[in-house]
Simulated scan of single mutants.
Amino acid sequence: MSVEAARFREVLGHFPTGVCVVTAIGEDGSPAGMAIGSFTSVSLNPPLVGFLPAKASSSFPRIRAAKSFCVNVLSAGQEDLCRVFATSGADKFADVGWSDAPSGAPVLDGVLAWIDCAWESVHETGDHYLALGRVTALDAVADHPLVFFRGGYGRWEKQTALPHKEFP
């Protein structure tokens, strides 16, 4: 059975994701960054995270060449920032405030959380790469995430927790 790309995207768009910007300091000393919606925790021991940049990305080669990278989890009010980092070819850092993570990679102002990483590995996976990083430092600094769902952006706010259920 063959699955059409448009249908694949439509159906998987029903899975809400957080939105992140992966940043690094390029070999030329200037910051690089790209928006991603495919970020995940991979392992607790050792602490590993992963993201899946497209092979066609013009930003990923600069990030990959860096010694480290930082995953910036965007907060609810940062949709415009996400759109800047999703644009190809522009000076993405022109009007963006940031500070240095412990590795020197950019931590963007106002993010929900940041995860500073050393490169672990990069694997080819279809038309994307699976990029893995070993977490070296991290922090959570805001309350409400930017969420992508069915082609649009929104926010999530914690509701009253449902009763905990035990599963067999």
Rank of each mutant, 00 (worst) to 15 (best):
M1V: 03
M1S: 00
S2W: 08
S2I: 06
S2T: 11
E4K: 00
E4F: 00
A5P: 09
A6E: 15
A6S: 14
F8R: 06
F8N: 05
R9N: 06
R9G: 06
R9V: 00
E10A: 15
E10I: 12
P16F: 00
T17L: 02
G18M: 05
G18Q: 04
C20T: 08
T23E: 00
A24Q: 04
I25W: 05
I25V: 02
G26Y: 04
D28M: 07
G29A: 06
P31T: 02
A32N: 01
M34G: 01
M34S: 01
A35D: 01
I36G: 11
S38I: 00
F39L: 06
F39S: 04
F39D: 04
S41E: 02
S43R: 06
L44Q: 01
L44T: 01
P46Y: 08
P47N: 10
L48P: 04
F51L: 13
P53F: 01
A54M: 00
S58L: 02
S59R: 08
F60K: 03
P61I: 05
A65M: 13
A65V: 07
A65K: 08
K67T: 11
K67N: 11
K67D: 10
S68H: 10
N72M: 02
L74I: 06
S75P: 05
A76W: 10
E79T: 07
V84G: 03
V84W: 04
A86Y: 09
A86P: 01
A94L: 07
D95R: 14
W98H: 04
S99A: 07
D100I: 05
D100M: 08
A101N: 10
P102K: 02
A105F: 01
A105K: 02
P106V: 01
P106S: 04
V107Q: 00
V107K: 09
V107H: 07
D109W: 08
G110E: 08
V111G: 12
V111D: 12
L112R: 11
I115M: 12
D116A: 14
D116V: 14
C117G: 11
C117F: 12
A118R: 13
W119G: 12
S121P: 10
H123G: 14
T125H: 15
T125D: 15
G126L: 15
D127R: 14
H128C: 10
H128R: 03
H128N: 01
H128K: 06
H128D: 01
R134S: 15
T136K: 13
T136Q: 13
D139I: 02
A140F: 08
V141R: 15
V141W: 05
H144M: 14
L146Q: 12
L146D: 13
V147P: 07
R150K: 15
G151D: 03
G151C: 03
G154W: 09
R155A: 11
R155F: 09
W156I: 01
W156F: 09
W156K: 00
K158C: 13
L162P: 15
P163F: 08
H164Y: 11
H164L: 12
